[in-house]
Design a protein around this nucleic acid. Structure first.
Lengths: 139, 139
DNA sequence: GTGTTTGCAAAGTGTTTGCAATTTA
DNA sequence: TAAATTGCAAACACTTTGCAAACAC
């Protein structure tokens, strides 16, 4: 969620993770976090930036999304080969994947419990548990 | 699991789903189902076939894997952008994903229970519920 | 000024496709 | 022989990379 000072918010967010607030990063940060939780691909964010008259190259969008992910501002979600979604919600939660629309929808993590999982294979530890509920148009 | 007549098994399997038992399909079917549950990419299966002296093109491996998947002999697993794994276990189950090795390991579905999932979004129905436990080398 | 970031275009990866030649029934 | 299948090479979608020019501090 964002306050009513999107530029100041974006600036603070970047400062918080020690990324230089360049024009491109500020603009992308603003678009990403201004309107609640979002699930975007690099291409979609790039198109959105173009549409808003912001000059950013696709390569920079990719770089920025990965920097934000490394900094913990975003989370990557893999549901569909050959496409990467970036989720602005970094809290513990799961996803519906609407196959017909190639769209993600959050499932709040608090309500969901998974029981009966075996312990991680020898020598490994759990990094994350992802639940993806694939749904499609009811027949 | 397979009997001790891998060629006969492969033949029966193909007949069961009404796919012509061509030399390539027979060979791939045999490799896939002869040795218990496997998680393979097209490239790996292709390399394995080459190694065994079987002449198959990569394109045919892709086609065949998709035909087998459509026929219900295989299941696709997506865990890693830009790579598709095919799982010879079509029973309801989940996966560990060993990130360091890019390798999948089955989690039997019987033991695992997921509670608290909300109902599918309006107008949709659940196609599948995939749980992926990402693990990495314990530090 | 110095080091960081950007944009472009090229390269990379995994996958799909069109079509002539081959194989299966 | 008719229809299905194969293999090749080209095309494809998405992503990453190298490097010179532009920018932030």
């Amino acid at each position: 969620m964002s306050s009513e000072r999107p530029f100041a918010d974006a600036l603070n967010r970047l400062r918080g993770v020690e990324l230089r607030p360049t024009r491109q990063r500020l603009a992308l940060c603003k678009m990403l976090f201004e309107h609640g939780d979002r699930h975007l691909t690099a291409e979609v964010l790039h198109a959105e930036a173009q549409g808003a008259g912001i000059k950013v190259s696709l390569a920079t969008v990719y770089n920025t999304l990965h920097q934000f992910t490394d900094a913990g501002l975003l989370r990557e979600v893999i549901v569909d080969g050959g496409k990467t979604y970036f989720d602005t919600n970094t809290a513990d939660h799961h996803h519906f994947y609407l196959e017909d629309e190639c769209r993600l929808q959050d499932i709040c993590g608090d309500a969901v419990a998974i029981s009966g999982l075996p312990t991680a294979p020898d020598g490994t530890e759990v990094a994350s548990v992802d639940v993806i509920v694939r749904v499609r148009k009811a027949q």
